[in-house]
Amino acid sequence: MSFFKKLKEKISKSTDTVTNKFKEGLSKTRTAFTEKVTELVFRRKKIDEEFYEELEEILITSDVGVNTVMDLIDDLRQEVKERKIEESAELQPILSEKLVELLQGENENSDINLPENELAIVLFVGVNGVGKTTTIGKMAHRLKQQGKSVMLAAGDTFRAGAIEQLEVWGERVGVEVIKQQAGSDPAAVMYDAIQAAKNRNVDVLLCDTAGRLQNKVNLMEELNKIYRVIRREVPSAPHEVLLVLDATSGQNALTQAKLFGEKTGVSGLVLTKLDGTAKGGIAIAIRQELNIPVKFVGLGEKMDDLQPFDSEQFVHALFSGMMTEETVEKTVEEN
């Protein structure tokens, strides 16, 4: 199985700290998930109908979504037939391979795409309470550490205390926040912020918006207006539109991605709160059905708890510990 070798190399190449952070943040997720799969594999040595059924349940528990799970299981059945696999232990690497495949698009860059020589604008959208403002704070910190000058636009003029929350982040990170009064037109805030960012030669402008449920027509139109104002001022912008998703959310996240995508052309996902016990499997379904990649994951409340998403690491973190070193070696040798 060259896959695991490749994975090992890739991971040893990336900095240990990042991997550790990932593993640490995901440890709870991983334990629950892998314990179950390991137990399943241990208990059911043979691959039979009941094995599939239980595997299906384990996958559903991670919010992957019924459709995606069904497709995945069908794929696995096919592989099992073709490769003539009988032992359930042999299925594990194939499963993780499939999951990585599901999360990865063809030759794409999972980092954010920001232009070098002009003002880069990133718009953050999402439903209420997913962590948009916190993500912006962390993102500002991250970009600043990369030597970029950053400005924040306080576009959530609706929720009580939202502007203040962004201001606190601005202070923490040491970046300027452009704001108006609570209740003012968010599109006007964006306009102001873009002008200010241009005047001060800022590299990146991060735009906060109020959380809104995707089925609220008026609020979604308001968001579209924000998007249009940004486009009008900087035709190539927004360079990224990041939909912030709560990892604990279930199937509704798919509708979120679809409808926010229609109004703002979502270019990537930020999966937050992955340090809990939720698995964020819905990202796989979104990847499959709407082809929107995960770009970042939120793994805690600290400033540096935002990490770029790496699908192999993600799946590896889910599965490491599930297989003993021995099994890995054996699998590698056998292939």
Binding site: A32, I60, T61, S62, D63, V127, G129, D246, T248, S249, G250, Q251, N252, A253, G276, T277, A278, K279, I282
Partner: peptide, 12 residues
């Protein structure tokens, strides 16, 4: 609790 919560609702 958020009505949109998925499978993890039970753990929480």
């Amino acid at each position: 609790i958020d009505a949109m919560t998925g499978q993890d609702a039970v753990n929480v």
